[in-house]
Amino acid sequence: MTGFAYHRPSSLDDALAALAEPGSLPIGGGSDLLAGIEEGHAAPTRVVELERIPELATITTQADGGVRIGGGVGIALLAEAPELSAFPVLRAACTAVGSPALRAMGTLGGNLAQRQRCWYFRSRVGCFKHGGTGCAAVDGEHVYHAIFASGTCHAAHPSDPAVALLVLDARVEVRSVRGTRMLDIEALYEGAAENVRSETVLAGDEVIVAVHLDAAARDGAQHWEKLTQRGAFDLALVSCAGVRRTDGSVRIALGGVAAGPWRAPHSVEEDIASGGLDEESIEALAARATYDATPLAGNAYKVQMAEAAIRRAAKTIAN
């Protein structure tokens, strides 16, 4: 690991100004960035600490029941935050992250912006994100990779909270010295399979200031499941988040299957929302949900897992 400067900003503006200078990278808990520096695919000359900036470190419940989560809030905190009791799917997804140590260090912003854990990417070999051509995983070792291809990269995004945030229709508040913009969580990962420098659309000087949850996403029926090999410290082979809102509408999303969190087709969600499903129709709609899957030679099992996860989600939130 090569050395870098450590900047503890006095304010958010100070942090943004620091990040506007080339060579600076934001750091939350550092659990991904420091590994990236050690592995040689991140080389900041300066890291800018975000965790202690008040705007980033707090969870605020709005008057209408919506919640604003600072990007620097720790995953462990979120997993038990009373402010999120109406969003159990997010708490469950945060509880599912890594291990106690990683949850203690990791922040929400850092978790959403973490890099892919593909072993070719991490080894810096056979990966277009490291100056190679194409994706070595396609004809190589890809048991953990994506089954919904959206571009050159076949890695599956590692974030658990992103999957929960997708079914909560969360919006991401992004800021830089150039201003503030609001992104749907889906838009945050647009082009993840083609972007070289990042899996998000964040520019180099932008940080995730907050994640916003609308009051309309509170309560209803919420479901979370993460399928892993081990009992802890594993990325999702497949994860599934599902909600039935109080207005009856349904959202289903999967993790571990695409370059970003993956949303089920609307027709599938609508069918679950319509209710009155028997075993057979649940099986049919789960199969329909994965109809567009393009698994590689060695990871078709994820399609089976995804269908099982969707069936279970449909059953728990249908009632």
Binding site: S99, R230, G231
Partner: peptide, 19 residues
């Protein structure tokens, strides 16, 4: 490539306490 891909304990999975 003739190369091992698990260069750490993330991809080489020994049991955790939870297992």
């Amino acid at each position: 490539m003739g190369r091992p891909l698990a260069l750490g304990l993330h991809d080489y999975k020994i049991p955790t306490h939870a297992d």
